[in-house]
């Protein structure tokens, strides 16, 4: 449970490091259809990035092996060592592909529990592609009805197209087309550096946790704004606008 805060500061257009796409899959089977969907999306994303002259790598974060860690972190209030490392990978990612199975007409509890232990500012302005699988096409809106608001809460940049796969989709060319469309959107956002531009200009406007896991979390005195109303109040002044009195 020792933590070393990540030093990754987000992606600048001139960043020489190849981008990293992190795939979060809450599928539990082997093979899991959720993981298969996530892999297809990841592969298409990497292909498109390579074609556009931006070779990238993907890392897969299967949540299944973290099920117990996630439950413990929920109760304890802090993650264990391995889960902490996974959270740091997420924080350092340039883009995410998040995929979950649908259980009982909703996102899997494992997926939601994982999101619950993340800090509120961990994914601010991070491009995210949302995907889900289900045993019936009747669950098709779970991605947009449940995952999208969840990532809106996190202030992540969910791409316009969500990818949902019911059993009949696996044989249909339309699924491949949707995957390509969604991956194109993710790739465009990543290449444009939208997330970095937002974070560059507006990071201080979001609520943050000091020394948290977010890539740009304030960690030292140099990162903090001591002219905020609360900081002025802390230094014996008044909280209102204007210089400390």
């Amino acid at each position: 449970m020792t933590t070393t805060p990540p030093r990754h500061i987000g992606r600048a257009p001139s960043d020489p490091e190849p981008p990293v796409v992190v795939v979060v899959s809450a599928g539990t089977g082997n093979p899991s259809s959720t993981r298969m969907l996530a892999d297809r999306i990841a592969q298409k994303t990497l292909d498109l990035l390579r074609e556009s002259g931006m070779p990238a790598s993907a890392r897969v974060l299967e949540l299944g092996p973290f099920a117990v860690d996630i439950a413990r972190a929920t109760i304890a209030g802090f993650p264990g060592e391995q889960l902490q490392a996974a959270i740091e990978e997420l924080a350092a990612a340039d883009a995410l592909i998040a995929a979950t199975p649908v259980y009982k007409a909703g996102v899997s509890g494992l997926f939601k529990s994982f999101v619950d232990v993340l800090e509120n500012d961990l994914l601010v302005a991070k491009p995210v592609l949302l995907g889900a699988t289900a045993g019936s096409a009747r669950h098709a809106l779970v991605v947009d009805d449940q995952m999208r608001p969840l990532f809106a809460y996190l202030r992540a940049l969910a791409v316009p197209t969500s990818v949902f796969a019911a059993p009949e989709d696996w044989g249909a060319t339309e699924l491949g087309e949707r995957i390509e469309r969604a991956a194109t959107e993710l790739t465009a956002m990543l290449r444009a550096g939208v997330g970095e531009q937002i974070a560059d200009r507006a990071w201080s406007g979001y609520q943050h946790q000091f020394a948290g896991n977010a890539a740009r979390a304030e960690r030292t005195a140099a990162d903090l704004d001591f002219d905020s109303p609360l900081m002025r109040l802390a230094a014996g002044g008044r909280a209102g606008p204007g210089p400390a009195g």
Binding site: M1, T2, T3, A76, G77, F78, E81, Q84, F210, E218, L224, F226, L230, M231, L233, A234, A235, G236
Partner: peptide
């Protein structure tokens, strides 16, 4: 951090309850 700042401003003590968190959190 505002509480740490207030302790520092006045030259008072700062106490971190070093439990229920990872080492050196």
């Amino acid at each position: 951090p505002e509480i740490a700042e207030q302790a520092a401003y006045y030259g008072n003590g700062y106490f971190a309850n070093n439990i229920l968190a990872p080492n050196f959190h």
